[in-house]
């Protein structure tokens, strides 16, 4: 559990982060979202003490981050940044093994950990281990960057706009990968982004920052349905709200028994996907399929009444 209490950062009298308190549960993904200059990156960087707070405190599993040297602290907190920050003069294996090496793991343990991570990120170890970052595609570089941050099985993974440099299609894949890997490893992740779409896709909890203050901290559905301020509402976008909300709800929520025509959707699809499929193909319901069997259907009517539920 990460506890941030009354943390403030001042630069020349200007408060970049202003009295922020929040608690992050172990094993969850918390996305901090805000415009540039909102203090979101500063907040993140105060957790691994790349910035020293002016006042306030961060506790990780009960222990204050101030109780040890910053570089010791950072070795047990993963850190992934925009533009990956890989060492261009080290191979992929050496990049991923960087933190274990700092922690003086034995060489064979580092080697097997590197291969394990490459496998996890769907990169064939024999093929990628000895390559240099310049020989990878943008998406591969980004995956190696995240793998490096996870290498020492950190208590917490901090990510600063990790997908910011990727083009939209690769970004969506990277987000899905991250979600999958997080669920598999049960990691605690705090991620900074300026993209509300990304925050809603990835976050168990979303923290919205504005001008140094934490203006709302809640589940994605709460942020969409009851924005705390005008600013949060703007971030979510008036027109986008229903669609964003539907994108959070799995088909299983409103599935009913019955039949429908046309191509089926998987159970992991959202109501937004179902709505989209209905509108595009002119159907009033789509079949839901699991393990090759049709298990039911979702109707346009059901989607509609689910969207109105928030009132």
């Amino acid at each position: 559990m990460i506890e941030i209490t009354h943390i403030t950062k001042e630069y020349d009298g200007v408060k970049a982060v202003d009295d922020v308190s929040m608690t992050v549960e172990t094993g969850s993904v918390t996305v901090i979202v805000g415009t540039s200059g909102s203090g979101k990156t500063t907040l993140l960087r105060m957790i691994n003490r790349l910035e020293e707070p002016t006042s306030g405190e961060v506790r990780i599993n009960g222990a204050s981050t101030l109780s040890e040297e910053p570089y010791i602290l950072r070795r047990r907190i993963g850190y992934a940044i925009q533009g990956h920050g890989l060492f261009p003069h080290h191979t992929v294996a050496r990049n991923i093994g960087a933190v274990p090496q700092l922690l003086k793991w034995p060489a064979d343990k580092i080697r097997s950990r590197v291969d394990e991570l490459l496998d996890l990120f769907s990169m064939e170890p024999d093929q990628f281990r000895d390559r240099y970052p310049a020989e990878l595609s943008g998406g591969q570089q980004q995956r190696v960057g995240v793998a490096r941050a996870l290498a020492s099985r950190p208590d917490l993974l901090l990510m600063d706009e990790p997908f910011g440099a990727l083009d939209p299609i690769i970004r969506t894949r990277a987000q899905d990968d991250l979600r999958r890997i997080q669920q598999r490893l049960g990691s605690t992740i705090m991620l900074v982004t300026h993209d509300m779409e990304e925050a809603i896709r990835l976050g168990d909890r979303v923290a919205v920052m504005d001008a140094g203050k934490l203006v709302q901290y809640g589940t994605p559905a709460e942020v969409i349905t009851t924005p705390a301020t005008r600013f949060v509402a703007d971030m979510v976008g008036e027109m986008e709200r229903p669609l964003r909300l539907l994108s959070l709800i799995p088909l299983s929520d409103v599935m009913e028994s019955g039949e429908a025509d046309g191509a089926p959707l998987g159970p992991e699809a959202s109501l937004r996907d179902a709505l989209s499929a209905c509108l595009w193909t002119g159907r009033s319901a789509v079949p839901v399929e699991e393990d090759g069997h049709i298990t039911g259907r979702v109707t346009l009517q059901a989607i509609r009444s689910r969207a109105e539920l928030h009132k």
Binding site: I81, Q82, L86, F87, V99, A149
Partner: peptide, 18 residues
């Protein structure tokens, strides 16, 4: 040194000498 690599080095807990 690319700034991102340096930032990553700090973030992963390298001492200034490292």
């Amino acid at each position: 040194t690319p700034p991102a690599a340096l930032e990553a080095a700090r973030g992963m807990g390298m001492t200034p000498a490292q």
